[in-house]
């Protein structure tokens, strides 16, 4: 917050930043790549700002990582910023996916390809889980929030409860907890 006009990244750097995120994210792991670029490499947002945006992007329906790009772009430069980030993230991947799809669906030599893909997918999942570990270590310092994180992770990720029900319990709990522990 409190960014001066001159501190805001240009539309071109928002666009190229999200082109990088889009092009690096083989196999997924987009949230981790986004944090790397937006918080660590470019310093557009603090970790706290990023985390709020990431949470809101997950709570709004739709693809989380696309939502996150629009959130970052809107925060930085309004509508043009949102468009720059969205197009940066999606334009080249759209071309790649359509090309790969056309080639793959018309050839039947895809076995080795799909085996390699599954390995990359497994690593990309680890990338997002590793992001979770890092964010936990950096941001969760009390028992209450730790219980909320663990509750959401286990109820959906292990026990398979539906997300809306879990959030209906977890979100009010988290808000109450944050209200009780607020700083004056």
């Amino acid at each position: 917050m409190g960014n001066r006009e001159t501190d805001r990244p240009s539309l071109a750097s928002l666009f190229t930043g999200f082109v990088r995120i889009g092009m690096m994210s083989f196999g997924g792991g987009l949230a981790a790549w986004t944090r790397r670029e937006v918080v660590q490499t470019r310093g557009w947002m603090s970790e706290q700002q990023f985390l709020s945006g990431y949470a809101l992007s997950q709570l709004v329906p739709g693809a989380t990582n696309v939502n996150l790009a629009v959130f970052v772009g809107t925060q930085m430069r309004g509508v043009p910023g949102a468009l720059a980030c969205f197009l940066g993230l999606t334009a080249l991947p759209v071309v790649i996916v359509l090309t790969a799809g056309t080639i793959y669906l018309h050839s039947h030599t895809g076995v080795w390809f799909s085996i390699a893909l599954s390995g990359m997918g497994a690593v990309a999942l680890g990338m997002n889980l590793g992001l979770g570990v890092r964010l936990s270590l950096n941001n969760i310092r009390r028992v209450g929030p730790a219980l909320i994180t663990a509750g959401i992770a286990l109820s959906i990720g292990v026990f398979g409860y539906r997300l809306p029900y879990v959030l209906a319990v977890a979100m009010p709990s988290s808000l109450l907890l944050a209200w009780w522990t607020r700083k004056a």
């Binding site: 985390l51 709020s52 949470a55 709570l59 979770g132 969760i140 929030p145 959401i152 988290s174 808000l175």
Partner: peptide
Amino acid sequence: ALAPVAIGL
């Protein structure tokens, strides 16, 4: 309040 929710998700 959002931070632990984002990480949990």
